[in-house]
Nucleic acid binder design. Structure first.
Lengths: 226, 226
DNA sequence: GGGCCTATCTTGACGGTGGCAAGATGGGTG
DNA sequence: CACCCATCTTGCCACCGTCAAGATAGGCCC
């Protein structure tokens, strides 16, 4: 493992994570003429725009161009750019949760192992969708007052808290706020650093090595301080 | 402590950190007429712009307005908006390092305690200058190929690595990449979460309580896993 | 089956933005 | 004193997000 390259936040990950879903909102039938279901098409285009240019260079007109419609078309479906990014952030959370689901699917019943799986899913998401990760966790543009986004982000947080409490309970303790904070912080920190390309995986890119490396670090910070 | 409010990244910190320096580049004499030293004035204005509008709404013309000069004036000193943000990021790293220095000043000689001080300084910086923190650690706009910024960001990373190694050495071990990664990740995660307003300090805002809370979490993740 | 109704999309305009080029200004130096 | 050149201003361009008005066509009711 090389911990390195302290600076540039834009370097690309060296390889894609194992089984983290990478598909867009869902390739719906596209239906009729008067322009299929533009809403879904715009979300796909918006994600492409985000991946290509990043949140700071994101352009609503660019999204419209990608979708092959006029520059004002998105307004009817999303109101304004913030509305589109809010909807995209909600989609991002759905993707985020499926990354965790994918890890959970191969984890055993142990709450601690399941918690580690959630953490690895969190990191998978950051590596697979760095721009979406930034949109979701570090942008002021999505409106978290929005019902859909509020619900899904609340669900993600609830999942974290439930996981931490399950670990504590399984070990005969009760989870403290410090447990939640430590768990969230270490996982989020690793995700931020690896997703941003500031911290690289060990050896080559052997996913198993990287997973073991990350899991060991997370484990270190989990409830039983010692 | 309440770990809460999973979503909005923009909420303001509830109180300012203890002794983290908060001043701008330095209130230089402003000198002559033909427009004093505009360069410094523009950096001050740029930081104000960043604090007020965030990196995503940052406007070069807004900076010029704040400084009371024409919209094209910054170009002569910084080339373009990226150049200004690069210089501001370098200033941010200087501020970052002084936040750590401030904590170090009251820490004893123990490497472990000094490492915790660096971590608390890191968090202080994120709380005192959330917009600058995002510019430095989560923006693609500063150019890390720039000599000044590259040097100062390299120094910050070197400080982290040296601190981790000092802790390991003092405890008769040798620092592993995992030690560096774990330390950076936990501190960065806490900073990101508290600076963004997603994770709040315990009890009221008693700085001592908060410091103890953070220090305990960091300590948990430091080298001796057990 | 025909005619309106309305959701959907386009066109065109506005103010604001970053970047460039050309011109004005004035301090420092010969 | 006169020139020079760093510095700053003015004006322009393309692009951006948003709004208002117009075009298009699918669906519904008779």
């Amino acid at each position: 493992m090389t911990v390195n390259d302290h600076a540039p936040p834009t370097a690309a990950p060296t390889s894609a994570p194992t089984s983290c879903p990478t598909s867009a909102p869902a390739p719906r039938p596209k239906a009729a003429y008067h322009h299929g279901d533009l809403r879904a098409a715009l979300l796909v285009a918006a994600e492409a725009e985000l991946d290509a240019r990043g949140i700071e260079e994101f352009s609503l007109r660019g999204v419209a161009r990608r979708a092959g419609v006029s520059h004002a078309a998105p307004a009817h479906h999303f109101g304004d750019a913030g509305g589109l990014l809010t909807a995209l952030a909600a989609e991002g959370f759905r993707r985020f949760l499926s990354c965790q689901d994918a890890r959970q699917a191969t984890a055993g019943p142990s709450p601690r192992v399941r918690m580690l799986a959630d953490g690895l899913g969190y990191i998978d998401f950051a590596r697979a969708h760095p721009a979406l990760f930034r949109l979701v966790f570090a942008s002021a543009r999505p409106d978290y007052g929005d019902a859909e986004l509020g619900a899904i982000s609340g669900a993600a947080y609830a999942r974290l808290e439930a996981g931490v409490q399950a670990v504590a309970r399984a070990e005969g303790r009760v989870a403290t706020p410090a447990d939640v904070a430590a768990t969230w912080a270490i996982v989020h920190g690793l995700a931020e650093l690896t997703g941003g390309g500031r911290l690289f995986a060990p050896g080559g890119d052997a996913p198993a090595d990287r997973d073991a490396f990350m899991a060991a670090i997370i484990d270190r910070c989990l409830p039983p301080p010692c």
